[in-house]
Design a binder for these strands. Structure first.
Lengths: 93, 93
DNA sequence: GGTATACATCATGGTGTGCTGATATCAGAG
DNA sequence: CTCTGATATCAGCACACCATGATGTATACC
């Protein structure tokens, strides 16, 4: 899940989708990447439930789903909280 | 930065360090990975400022730094917030 | 001193994964 | 119906990156 956010092009796509829904041609234009590449990444994001698909005639609009992202953000916060709580419980070798 | 959290073994190391500081031998034992592998990942995490190093004699203790993780968690929350705010600003082709 | 243990570094190899070009599909315009 | 443009899928390639074994360094214990 985090792995999906780790790729540079996917990160650009996600950042763009955070500014509002867009169709594939928008993403191709604005990222400068080739269309099959963008399409492939969008497929991964869709299968992971990170984006929703809305076909409109010839065009396919993608929308970023905030819930999935907030879930992983919350997991990271919880991780940081655990680290703070256990900062002094050093275990002996 | 997110990329560092994406690797499976690094994720296990980080999760372990969230339960308290540990030295390399602990991490090698508890992850089952080979020592040079663990050591290499720890180097990356250290260079990125995700963990702090505390040498104690022969042993080297590593401690997870919560600030870096919280920073990226906050970025993800902000991303989700932007997605919510712009959910209806669909741009025409 | 010598030995053993913890750890780091290096060179090598294998594999996952992203990128590309070609092709298929499908909707709309004419 | 035909043609064009938008998108999806597939096969092949290339590169990055993780894992491993060997080796080096340093500290503690005898």
């Amino acid at each position: 899940m985090i792995r999906l956010l780790a790729d540079p092009l996917r990160a650009r796509i996600i950042n763009r989708l955070a500014e509002g829904p867009a169709c594939t041609c928008h993403l191709v234009d604005e990222t400068g990447a080739k269309q099959p590449n963008v399409s492939g990444h969008l497929r991964l994001l869709r299968r992971a439930g990170l984006v929703a698909i809305e076909p409109r005639g010839r065009f396919t609009y993608y929308r970023l789903l905030p819930d999935a992202i907030e879930t992983t953000a919350a997991q990271l916060f919880e991780l940081a909280g655990r680290a703070r709580a256990t900062a002094e419980s050093r275990r002996a070798c």
